[in-house]
Simulated scan of single mutants.
Amino acid sequence: MALRLQLAPRALRTLSGCPSSMREQVQCELGALAAGLPLDGPLVLGQSGLVVLDSGFRVRYHLDPGHGLLRLTHVQAPQAHVR
């Protein structure tokens, strides 16, 4: 299933505050998540969950397969990158 990413404003602010190289890495990891590639086990359709990306970012998501969306409700940077 192809999914589009939808970022909550808070998640977008977190990513906007990251250095561009880190943001690019996270965007690639989020793209893999949206493409359905397993990063930390399979995604559960129609449910919320938490995944830790290879970069250390913790991402809370909600899958909305009816609209083809992967909603990122919260993104938390690793402690080393918190400003």
Rank of each mutant, 00 (worst) to 15 (best):
40 D>I: 00
82 V>A: 11
76 Q>I: 04
34 A>T: 02
56 G>I: 03
34 A>H: 07
42 P>I: 12
68 G>I: 03
57 F>V: 04
47 Q>R: 15
61 Y>M: 06
37 L>M: 11
18 C>G: 00
35 A>D: 10
73 T>E: 08
43 L>M: 11
68 G>Q: 08
31 G>D: 14
80 A>V: 03
50 L>H: 15
20 S>C: 06
47 Q>Y: 12
42 P>D: 13
33 L>N: 03
59 V>N: 10
51 V>S: 00
56 G>D: 09
4 R>K: 13
17 G>D: 13
32 A>H: 10
62 H>N: 07
79 Q>H: 07
74 H>K: 09
13 R>M: 09
44 V>A: 10
71 R>Y: 06
74 H>C: 04
4 R>A: 14
49 G>Q: 14
34 A>C: 01
17 G>Y: 07
67 H>Q: 06
38 P>S: 12
26 V>H: 06
83 R>A: 00
29 E>Y: 13
46 G>E: 13
61 Y>P: 03
42 P>G: 12
54 D>W: 13
73 T>P: 00
61 Y>S: 01
18 C>Y: 06
35 A>F: 05
51 V>R: 05
4 R>N: 11
6 Q>N: 04
32 A>I: 01
16 S>N: 05
32 A>W: 11
57 F>M: 05
11 A>P: 08
48 S>N: 08
40 D>M: 09
41 G>I: 12
15 L>I: 02
69 L>R: 13
53 L>C: 03
63 L>R: 08
12 L>P: 01
69 L>T: 02
82 V>I: 12
83 R>D: 05
15 L>C: 07
12 L>G: 02
42 P>F: 15
19 P>M: 09
56 G>M: 01
46 G>T: 04
36 G>M: 14
34 A>I: 04
22 M>F: 15
33 L>H: 05
21 S>G: 00
7 L>Y: 15
23 R>K: 14
55 S>V: 02
81 H>A: 01
2 A>K: 14
16 S>H: 11
28 C>N: 10
4 R>G: 02
65 P>R: 06
62 H>D: 05
80 A>R: 02
41 G>V: 12
80 A>D: 04
67 H>D: 08
18 C>P: 01
52 V>S: 09
74 H>S: 06
42 P>L: 14
63 L>P: 00
53 L>V: 01
37 L>H: 09
24 E>F: 13
25 Q>Y: 09
13 R>Q: 04
83 R>H: 03
16 S>L: 12
18 C>I: 00
15 L>D: 05
64 D>R: 04
16 S>M: 08
40 D>A: 15
11 A>D: 02
62 H>S: 11
22 M>S: 10
63 L>C: 09
21 S>Q: 09
78 P>T: 00
18 C>Q: 06
14 T>A: 07
68 G>C: 09
31 G>V: 03
75 V>I: 14
30 L>Q: 01
56 G>Q: 02
31 G>E: 14
29 E>Q: 12
51 V>C: 04
45 L>W: 15
81 H>W: 15
59 V>A: 07
33 L>D: 08
64 D>F: 04
58 R>V: 07
47 Q>W: 10
59 V>H: 02
15 L>N: 08
64 D>L: 13
52 V>P: 04
28 C>Q: 08
15 L>S: 01
53 L>H: 07
39 L>W: 12
